Amino acid sequence: MSANLSSNPKARTAAVPKKTRSPRPKKRTSALLTLFFYTIFALFFMGMFTSLWFFLTESGTNIRYMMADTLITTQHRHWAKYLIGEDELQKRVDRYWKQFDAYTAVQDQHLVQVGKPQETAVKAPEKKPLIEIEPIEGSNFKGKLLIVNDPKSLRIAVPGTAGKGEKVSSMVKRLGAAAGVNAGGFVDPEWMGNGFQPTGIVMSGGKIFYNDGGMNTPNHIVGIDKDGRLIAGKYKPSELLQMGVQEAVTFAPRFIVNGVGQIKNQADGWGIAPRTCIAQKEDGTIMFAIIDGRQPGYSIGATLFDIQKVFLEHGAVTAANLDGGSSTVLVHNNEIINRPSSEYGERYLPTAWLVFEHPETANIRNIWEGLDPSKIDPSKW
């Protein structure tokens, strides 16, 4: 039986299975694990190296403080403590305000001469357009330069309805303005405020519309007087009335005085952010810089040092900062022509600089008249 089976080729074939090539999972798995651990090690090494550079070197520290300054100008100011610590954050904020106060100590030499005739002109100068708009840009930013050739064409506008701020585009359309730019700061709880309560002082048409302090309480202000001169610095409301200031809001700092920039370097430029700033040339021409930001791939934003450079290149003798960030907006011909950074769209604001063909006819009324500033709820919509 056994001999027959061994001599039967079919039986032999059935008894001896064919050899198949088996997979080798162990070596492949081992290679993957090795790659994984090498990657983790490399990332750990790079992270450790970056941290040492970020916190212990001069170049890393400069970038760290620039990032902290940028956060200070946003609704996430408290995040800056993770970069520089809680104590250093407060010191940084306090230092900026001391710098802003120091800038106001520089005496204005009154270089601006609005409407001064050109003695060397052979013929009368051609009439300039009411406004001009130019693109401006730097290594990290893009924006617009709004040129207002007659400073007396500017008015501070306020919302038309009490209890809620108004979009600049809405103010422009409602009041028939040629252009509009956001203006002063406002109380903004949790950065979700209704835009109705300004900070400091608001003046329009030579009258005080809003004042959250006394008549002798100094405020950082940005305004225009009866002669069309840009007034920026720290003043009491009573002083503003004596000086003949017509339009004004509260914000800071004044950073160009007598044609000299006060900000000495990028490190003191108050971080990178969307910006709105105002300047004036010697002949009275007003310039607004509207800088887009917080949009990687298009425009990250600018420091005040960046804008100071732009203004000086355009002949500014005085310049000051206005509210910026997600409030920054430029409206022309009833259209927004910049790219605001707010994810919720154009913000509701208490004040705006508007340009009019006939500013004396603008129907701007005081919606805060009779209201107690301490009883305004800026979070109630």
Rank of each mutant, 00 (worst) to 15 (best):
E166H: 10
E166A: 14
V168K: 08
V168D: 10
V168W: 10
S170T: 13
M171S: 14
R174D: 15
R174W: 12
L175P: 13
G176P: 15
A177H: 13
A178G: 15
A179L: 13
G180M: 11
G180A: 10
N182F: 11
N182W: 11
A183Y: 07
A183V: 04
A183S: 09
A183C: 08
A183R: 06
A183G: 06
G184K: 08
G184P: 11
G184I: 04
G185E: 14
G185I: 13
F186E: 02
F186D: 04
F186M: 14
V187S: 08
V187Y: 03
V187K: 10
D188S: 07
D188V: 05
P189V: 01
P189M: 01
M192L: 05
M192N: 13
G193D: 01
G193S: 06
G193T: 09
G193I: 03
F196R: 00
F196H: 04
Q197A: 12
T199G: 06
G200I: 00
G200N: 01
G200R: 01
I201E: 00
I201V: 10
V202W: 02
S204A: 14
S204C: 02
S204F: 05
S204M: 07
G205F: 08
G205E: 06
G206A: 05
K207A: 14
K207M: 09
I208M: 07
I208Y: 04
I208S: 06
Y210P: 10
Y210I: 04
N211E: 07
N211A: 06
D212I: 08
D212V: 07
D212Q: 15
G213H: 12
G213W: 06
G214P: 09
G214Q: 12
M215Q: 14
T217R: 07
T217L: 04
T217F: 08
P218N: 04
P218E: 05
H220A: 12
H220T: 03
H220Q: 13
V222C: 01
G223Q: 00
G223I: 02
K226P: 07
K226N: 11
K226A: 14
D227Q: 15
G228N: 13
G228P: 09
G228C: 11
L230F: 12
L230G: 08
I231M: 14
I231R: 12
I231H: 11
A232G: 15
A232P: 13
G233K: 07
G233Y: 04
K234T: 13
K236C: 09
K236F: 06
S238G: 02
S238H: 03
S238T: 10
E239A: 15
E239N: 09
E239K: 11
L240R: 03
L241C: 02
L241K: 14
Q242C: 00
Q242T: 08
M243Y: 05
M243Q: 12
G244K: 00
V245S: 00
V245L: 01
Q246K: 02
E247S: 01
E247V: 00
A248L: 02
V249Q: 04
T250N: 10
T250D: 10
F251A: 03
A252N: 08
A252V: 00
A252Q: 09
R254H: 02
R254Q: 05
F255L: 09
F255P: 08
F255H: 10
I256N: 04
V257Y: 00
V257K: 08
